[in-house]
């Protein structure tokens, strides 16, 4: 049998210097992410049919919004709040991609994760469990994007979106998609961590999702919301997860607004990360590991 390395082998421990240690850790994390994303892709390919039906089911929501708002626009002389049926179509077709990229580990999964003892297993590994979720769902996105393309093509043929983004908008949109993914991951992880304090937290989750639905641009573009709602949305993270990425591509939006949007996303990623860190540190002390 092979003998373990004397120092049990972490590369970082054998190389002096903070920079080298940082570089080694970053490289290791990168390898972990790519490995886990690869496994997520393999896993989700096995469930491609289920994934497809799930996505088709999911487009019902934006299509309803789109039909309703297009009808309102037409009856309102061709536009409402600056949105025409074409720009509504662009908004809600991009919405379908943003929504899929926004799928992360839900707080409901936390209840199950604790009950089944899965969290105990994750705690035994020398890596923070959030990396597993981030890597897994990021890998899943590769499948999501592949499956989304024909859906987007079909929606485009049916609804004729008006969309003419600049290259810079496309770049920001790409960055904003992953920013939205990270923000939603952090906040839903933090929400899920409440499960470490109490076992019945579904009501809290529902309240969060309701606020997100109304104040993110998911239900309706925020520019169509009353002023007080827009002001409220401005100080909450939801807009950065739906409204901003969508508008970054569909416009109208200025370069300054694009930069502001990206920086706001960065702010919420940091805030979310700090909340997770704090809750994790406190919550894990309470963990009873009853599930295994």
């Amino acid at each position: 049998m092979i003998t373990a390395e004397p120092a049990s082998g972490p590369i970082a421990e054998t190389e002096p210097g903070r920079f080298r240690e940082f570089r080694t850790n970053a490289l290791w994390l990168w390898r972990y992410y790519t490995q886990f994303m690869r496994l997520a892709i393999i896993t989700q390919f096995q469930y491609r049919a289920a994934n497809y039906f799930y996505m088709i089911g999911m487009i019902a929501e934006p299509v309803v919004y789109l039909v309703v708002w297009s009808t309102i626009a037409r009856t309102n002389g061709g536009s409402v709040g600056g949105f025409t049926p074409g720009t509504f179509a662009a908004y809600y077709i991009v919405w379908t991609l943003v929504r899929n990229i926004n799928i992360v580990f839900t707080p409901f999964g936390w209840e199950q994760r604790i009950k089944d003892g899965e969290l105990s297993g994750l705690l035994l590994q020398p890596i923070h469990p959030i990396h597993r979720d981030l890597a897994f769902f990021a890998g899943w996105k590769v499948i999501v994007i592949i499956l989304w393309l024909p859906i987007a093509a079909a929606l485009t043929l049916i609804f004729h979106p008006s969309l003419s983004p600049t290259v810079w908008q496309c770049v920001v949109f790409f960055l904003a998609l992953w920013g939205a993914y990270l923000i939603r991951s952090m906040f839903l992880w933090a929400l899920g961590l409440i499960s470490l304090w109490t076992t019945r937290v579904s009501a809290i989750f529902q309240a969060y999702f309701m606020a997100e639905l109304l104040l993110s641009g998911r239900l309706v573009p925020l520019t169509l919301m009353p002023k007080w709602a827009r002001s409220l949305a401005g100080v909450l993270p939801f807009q950065s997860t739906f409204g901003f990425p969508i508008t970054a591509l569909t416009g109208p939006i200025t370069d300054a607004q694009l930069w502001h949007g990206l920086l706001t996303q960065l702010w919420w990623i940091v805030v979310g990360g700090l909340i997770v860190k704090l809750m994790w540190r406190r919550g894990i002390r309470r963990f009873a590991s009853v599930g295994g």
Binding site: G9, P10, I11, Y32, Q35, F36, L39
Partner: peptide, 8 residues
Amino acid sequence: ELVRSIYR
């Protein structure tokens, strides 16, 4: 393989 990447 995943274990390999977790434990470096």
